[in-house]
């Protein structure tokens, strides 16, 4: 779920923009300068994977994957997500231009934390990786929904009702995200474990 233009009070949107800017600057700083083009190319694949819709009963939900981005990119994840959201806004108008900062916070902060969580806890066995992958993926979405709730609530008590429903609507998404993240991590662990190291430079064999 992206926040569109005009929902947030201007002050909140501007504040989020400032915080995002600072986080993005930190994210750029923590990425090796030579790796920036690589982050850009990988971002394109995250963008594409967020277009994948998983059917859910009569409707379908599209994947958000903040957790996976964090797992794969570590600190560069925030930059990648900001970039992806900007492009979504430019191409599809998903998420507003003026709310870009807020949207980036909503997805980027969970990505950073999921990445950290995964990196700390993942251990060495396949099962453990998968489990922590699920945890990181699920909690990433959970956190994103929580931030969404806070952002909506900043509009005043008028928005509380919408906020509650928006969070409720995310519940099945947590489950789907957790499972998909677990399976993706499991696949990568078996096929190309280097990718889970959160360093772009390590996979240069080709």
């Amino acid at each position: 779920m992206h926040i569109a233009d005009g929902v947030l009070p201007l002050s909140v949107a501007a504040g989020c923009g400032a915080v995002s800017l600072a986080l993005a600057a930190w994210s750029v700083r923590s990425t090796d300068g030579d790796d920036l083009p690589k982050v850009a190319v990988v971002t394109a694949s995250f963008f594409v994977s967020s277009l994948i819709h998983v059917p859910l009963g009569p409707t379908s939900v599209h994947l958000l994957i903040p957790g996976l981005v964090g797992i794969l990119l570590g600190r560069s994840a925030f930059l990648s997500i900001l970039l992806g959201l900007l492009l979504q806004s430019l191409l599809f108008s998903f998420g507003g231009l003026t709310a870009l900062g807020a949207n980036a916070l909503m997805m980027g902060v969970p990505a950073l934390l999921s990445g950290l969580l995964f990196n700390r806890l993942r251990g060495t066995s396949h099962k453990q990786n998968m489990l922590i992958g699920a945890l990181a993926g699920g909690s990433g979405t959970l956190l994103a929904a929580t931030i969404l709730a806070f952002l909506l609530a900043s509009g005043g008590e008028d928005f509380f009702g919408v906020m509650k429903l928006a969070v409720l609507a995310h519940i099945p998404v947590f489950v789907i995200e957790a499972l998909v993240s677990a399976f993706t991590v499991s696949f990568l662990y078996r096929v190309k474990p280097e990718l889970l190291e959160q360093r772009l430079g390590v996979v240069c064999q080709g």
């Binding site: 083009p37 677990a182 772009l200």
Partner: peptide, 23 residues
């Protein structure tokens, strides 16, 4: 969901490989 996981994994592997070739 499992297939979707593999699918995403494959997509990421290919994209990471491509980043290096592009660079």
């Amino acid at each position: 969901l499992q297939v979707a996981g593999n699918f995403l994994g494959m997509l990421f592997v290919r994209s990471f490989e491509r980043t290096h070739r592009v660079y």
